Simulated assay, not measured.
Amino acid sequence: MRTLGNILWLVLAGWWLALGYIIAGIVACILIVTIPFGIAAFRLAGYTLWPFGRHVVVARGAGIFSLIGNIIWIVLFGWELAIAHVVAGLILCLTIIGIPLGIAAMKLVPLALVPLGTRVVASDRMLPAYERELR
């Protein structure tokens, strides 16, 4: 089921949302100081292309540099990408089939605003160890 969701997502919204992250990543990699923003943007582009079956894990002890970086990210790129996710979510929610995809787009808004200090992991890694052994 998640493969079908990912294919629908890719066709309807994923490719152009990921394109926004790729453009932000290329712009961020122009300067050496902003390369961490570019790496985060490329990581999020991959997650935006194929989001179902993966989760975002927030590192609670990311530190002050992550906080400062996220503030700079919001000013430079985050607000535009968050608006793109909101617009995509609203457009996708216009149809019954698109409602789950629209909800997924809305769930990506906080990640578009504050990407530093997060990791994207497979859903299987989110399971407790005893459940992973059963699969």
Rank of each mutant, 00 (worst) to 15 (best):
A41D: 04
L134W: 15
V56S: 14
H55T: 09
L134F: 14
R119E: 01
V57R: 06
V57E: 08
L8H: 01
F37L: 13
A62T: 00
L81N: 00
I103A: 06
L12K: 01
H55R: 08
S123E: 14
A84G: 10
G78T: 13
F65I: 08
Y21C: 11
I71A: 03
I64C: 02
F77T: 04
A88T: 13
L67A: 07
V58N: 02
A41I: 12
M126H: 09
D124V: 13
I26A: 09
F37C: 01
G46E: 05
I99H: 07
D124C: 09
A28Y: 01
A62D: 06
L101G: 11
R43I: 15
C29K: 02
A45C: 13
A105W: 05
A84Q: 10
P110H: 08
R54S: 07
P110A: 07
L67Y: 02
V57T: 01
V58G: 00
P36M: 00
R54Q: 13
G46W: 12
T3Q: 11
A62W: 02
I103V: 02
T3F: 08
R119P: 00
M126L: 08
Y130N: 12
M1R: 13
I35Q: 01
F52L: 11
I91G: 04
W9S: 10
G14V: 00
I96L: 09
T34Y: 14
H55E: 05
